[in-house]
């Protein structure tokens, strides 16, 4: 008897065969469709802008568009939470900054982002500057600290949020110098700048993006930069680093892209390659510098290491300076 399969059998066999042919051999053909990038900030902010600048070039290298989805709120946690929960297939990635390392330390974050994310590449980094009014008598950091020692509690500095990058630097310096400097919380860089220019607070630590113009105009004086090395910029390069002055306060924030944990290494490598290409483009570098950030490219491994070191270093700072206690005292 000849084997004569029924029509139905043939159809089913054909279906199964085609399904087998379409089994994901995803890594080789990645990316096959547009990639979503979650930006945990509102549109128009510096992180959002840097992301848009870089992906404009990276899209060409990948052959697929990268679509930005802004998910601001809860100090980047809304966007980060969504990123952590996404499929690690390489079609959802997201921007991260130093808050990814800081938020979990205070216990309010749902995940430990440094562990739950796959680092991919860093686009830029910015370290805060501690600035005072140019009309004040303090020419150096030591002058400020001497004044603070002589008059405990009289010198107050402004911050843009408890426990964020504007808070850690001055707090650590105050701790190491053994002076008492109370902090005043403002709801954003703009109101803090107004208070600083108006002399309502004596000092404030903020991003060079905000302070550069005022320093150039002679309104503010930068006393210390919380970075590893001096800046390349002509003006900011004149400000000494905290390490130079003998304080262990490195608070560099990164603007980087990561993905959910568990991404295939080939997919990560492909993304890395595309971003590296974009970051080699002079136009991209110039645009980032224009925004006031330092366009330093780091690959996945280096980024991962930076994030882990930052988490360790900053955990030490917030514990020693008592910031962690301050925040915890409200929640327990």
């Amino acid at each position: 008897m000849t084997f004569k399969p029924s029509r139905r059998t043939v159809l089913i066999a054909a279906l199964l065969a085609s399904a087998a042919a379409v089994t994901p051999v995803a890594a080789q053909t990645y990316p096959e469709r547009p990639i979503t990038m979650i930006v945990p900030f509102g549109p128009g902010g510096s992180t959002d802008l840097i992301a848009r600048i870089v992906i404009a070039k990276a899209e060409a290298a990948l052959g697929q568009p990268i679509v930005i989805e802004n998910k601001p709120g809860a100090g980047t946690m809304i966007g980060l939470n969504e990123l952590v929960g996404a499929e690690p297939d390489g079609y959802t990635i997201g921007m991260t900054t130093s808050s990814a390392a800081l938020q979990p330390i205070y216990g309010a974050a749902r995940y430990d982002y440094v562990d739950e994310l796959t680092p991919i590449a860093q686009f830029a980094q910015t370290a805060p500057i501690l600035a005072v009014q140019a009309s004040s008598d303090w020419q150096t950091l030591e002058d400020l600290l001497a004044d603070a020692k002589a008059n405990p509690g009289a010198i107050k500095y402004g911050i843009t949020g408890v426990g964020n990058s504007s808070h850690l630097g001055p707090a650590q310096v105050a701790l190491e110098a053994g002076v008492e400097m109370p902090h005043v919380v403002f709801d954003g860089g703009a109101t803090l700048m107004t208070a600083l220019l108006g002399g309502h607070v004596s000092a404030a630590a903020g991003s060079p993006v905000d302070y550069k113009e005022q320093i150039a105009a002679g309104e503010l004086r930068g006393l210390v930069l919380f970075a590893e090395e001096r800046s390349d910029d002509a003006l900011i390069g004149q400000i000494p680093t905290a390490l130079e002055l003998g304080y262990t306060a490195e608070i560099t924030s990164w603007t980087a892209v990561s993905g959910p944990k568990g991404m295939a290494p080939e997919v990560v490598a492909k993304l890395e390659g595309a971003f590296a290409e974009a970051m080699a483009d002079e136009e991209v570098l110039a645009a980032i510098r224009e925004l006031g950030s330092d366009p330093v490219y780091l690959d996945a491994e280096a980024l991962g290491e930076r994030m882990r070191n930052a988490r360790e270093g900053w955990t030490a700072i917030v514990t020693d300076t008592g910031i962690l206690d301050l925040v915890k005292s409200q929640t327990n």
Partner: peptide, 8 residues
């Protein structure tokens, strides 16, 4: 967010 300590 509480303005003093950023707790919810």
């Amino acid at each position: 967010m509480d303005p003093l300590t950023a707790t919810g």
